[in-house]
Design a protein around this nucleic acid. Structure first.
Lengths: 207, 207
DNA sequence: ACCTTCGGTGTACATCCGTACACCGAAACT
DNA sequence: AGTTTCGGTGTACGGATGTACACCGAAGGT
């Protein structure tokens, strides 16, 4: 009574999304049944259709949300960046750890569905990651040492870094926050970033 | 009649493994039913139990085989290695492309189940990849320029390279052999390896 | 005040699932 | 030759799944 009909609808839509995200964490979207989700939410199975036509469509909505937090991650990294290489690296990894902690369900979801999800979901994720690579490539072009790089080399380095960060995120989600293992993973990530960026100063496009 | 009982058994076991590998390519192991596999093989569902206690156990057998071809990949790379950095890189990527072509079902399987598979399968894959990192670290220690590296830094670089190669493999399986895209992926992989290895000459452990 | 819209309900059904059980027939052993 | 082993069969079950259909009751529009 305190709320309008659209508010009610939105609320159960959220509940469905949250339940699906939580349940898919136990295995995968493709192993998730409409009835499980409905039971978890506390609605009757057929009510599910008032919000989504299928689990796959639900998955696409989840991908959108997960990719949003991925973009937030990039933005936070950019915002926190110092100008010294050391600062950039330390700051980026700190932000990564923090964001994965705060939204580990989303990162786990991306890792799981990236190769195992329904086709449409996979494609959506791949497009999102590609977008991140493109954004990062632009950031990289503002770094000292990349003045004469070709666009393609910038993209290639970007892909390398994004790949390493995705792998790091995948490792982080499997680990408890604040643990010693988490620190080791962060340390490895910092070292890897340094290794990749050391190359930057020496690199000349085409050679 | 021409064959003994153990041969027969082994033959249908193989058929089950092959069918499961093929069918899991459409989605995931966790979305694969015992009955689907049985139907594909041409046996009655209950006959499945003569070979595996569950789909998960079947999955573990598949992991073993997939990890075998991963080890073959490493061995082939080592065998084909020149002593010049350029040779090593070109040769390694060539072997990678060739192996992924020849066993793309296995590489796809690893990519899919690595994060989305049953727990035991995920762990087995992670252990296998870790083993590859360790092996590669030893190879790296024989490279010129890594004389004074700490073991940990060798492992870290190894993890970086393995991660990039896994990502490359994941991209290769999604692409048709001999296509222009495949060439581009291989080219990117070569560049990335060069970028990583350029750092090797400049790197000093702890700094 | 009346009618419409629409999120949620309840029942129902065909299909698929894993698995238990009794059974078969030929290979393998003695 | 007689017996055992064992991969494969066939039936049968309780339970889960997607979805069609008729229905309800309150919010929302007129």
């Amino acid at each position: 009574m305190t709320d309008t009909r659209v508010e009610r609808k939105e609320r159960t839509r959220r509940a469905i999304l949250d339940a699906a995200l939580a349940l898919s964490g136990e295995s995968t979207l493709v192993a998730l049944s409409l009835r499980q989700v409905a039971k978890e939410v506390g609605i009757v199975p057929t009510a599910f259709y008032r919000h989504f036509a299928s689990i796959e469509e639900l998955g696409l909505a989840l991908v959108d949300e997960a990719l949003d937090t991925l973009r937030v991650l990039l933005r936070e990294i950019r915002r926190s960046a110092g100008h010294d290489y050391r600062d950039i690296i330390d700051g980026s990894v700190a932000v990564l750890v923090e964001q994965v902690r705060a939204h580990h369900a989303h990162f786990g979801f991306i890792a799981r569905e990236r190769f195992a999800g329904p086709t449409a979901v996979r494609q959506a994720i791949e497009r999102g990651i590609e977008l991140c690579e493109r954004e990062l490539a632009v950031d990289l072009s503002h770094l000292p040492g990349t003045d004469r790089w070709s666009d393609q080399d910038l993209r290639t380095l970007s892909a390398l870094i994004v790949g390493a960060m995705v792998t790091t995120a995948e490792r982080l989600v499997a680990v408890e926050p604040g643990s010693a293992v988490e620190l080791r993973i962060a340390d490895t990530a910092r070292t890897q970033l340094r290794m990749m960026l050391i190359g930057v100063q020496r690199w000349r496009s085409n050679s």
